[in-house]
């Protein structure tokens, strides 16, 4: 039997006087991929910040002790203000040169002289790969990834998710992903948490993602076409 790695019970987050998350409960097992699904402004990123202890909350967040977490935010726009090379970017996390080369290979960035390349010279897709590598560069057990395909075209998105899945399978990492893309949920999620301030549905995607649940989540009428395998 797999062990729980995270348990969240009656979580409430308020920012200013606004309730962002209300009475949220869920759990994540070791090696699981949980996708947090919801419209913009649903509180998905805030949930991640609460899980990481970056903002105040009430309720209970329990992580298995001595876990190593890694968080990759949607974007890092300010990184372009510094003339960092890829090697220097990994140095910020004190990742060795050998490890950097190894992890870059894992995400398919094997061009010669890649370490000396400036971050500002990378395309959005390449930078996203670097971010994944950066997130995985240390020996982590849990990866929290906020919209890993932000700003990448559809073909590129597929690549990023396949890459994430490959690395995750190889290393048995527990992954929490924020997305508003339903196809990602069907393809990669063990469990899905539909969030719009409150938890609107939670469980195995195929069992719980009905048209009704989705129209409640996004508002309006939504038809679901399941992939035939």
């Amino acid at each position: 039997m797999t062990e729980d790695i995270l348990r969240v019970k009656n979580l409430n987050v308020e920012l200013g006087r606004e309730k962002i998350i209300e009475n949220l409960s869920f759990k994540v097992e070791e090696g699981e991929t949980l996708v947090v699904l919801g419209p913009n402004g649903a509180g998905k990123t805030i949930l991640f910040k609460a899980l990481l202890g970056l903002i105040p909350y009430t309720g209970e967040i329990w992580w298995k002790p001595e876990l190593k977490l890694s968080y990759v935010p949607t974007r890092l726009p300010l990184v372009k203000e510094f003339p960092l090379t890829i090697e220097e970017f990994f140095n910020l996390k004190e990742v060795s040169r050998e490890r950097t080369i190894e992890i870059l290979k894992e995400v398919g960035m094997t061009q010669s002289n890649i370490l000396k390349k400036k971050i500002t010279e990378l395309s959005t897709g390449q930078f996203q790969r670097i971010l994944i590598a950066w997130g995985l560069s240390k020996d982590v057990q849990v990866l929290l990834f906020d919209e890993p395909t932000f700003g990448i075209d559809i073909g590129g998105q597929e690549n990023v998710y396949n890459l994430l899945e490959k690395v995750q399978k190889e290393r048995g990492i527990t992954t929490l992903l924020i997305s508003h893309d339903l196809s990602v949920v069907y393809k990669f999620a063990d469990n899905v948490l539909c969030l719009n301030k409150k938890s609107l549905c939670y469980g195995r995607p195929k069992e719980i993602l009905s048209s009704k649940a989705l129209s409640e989540l996004y508002g309006g009428e939504i038809k679901v076409y399941k992939h035939v395998k």
Partner: peptide, 17 residues
């Protein structure tokens, strides 16, 4: 120096580290 760069790029990330 590198700690300041790290927290300038993302304070949240720096805290997680």
């Amino acid at each position: 120096y590198s700690k300041i760069i790290f927290s300038s790029i993302s304070e949240d990330l720096a805290k997680v580290e």
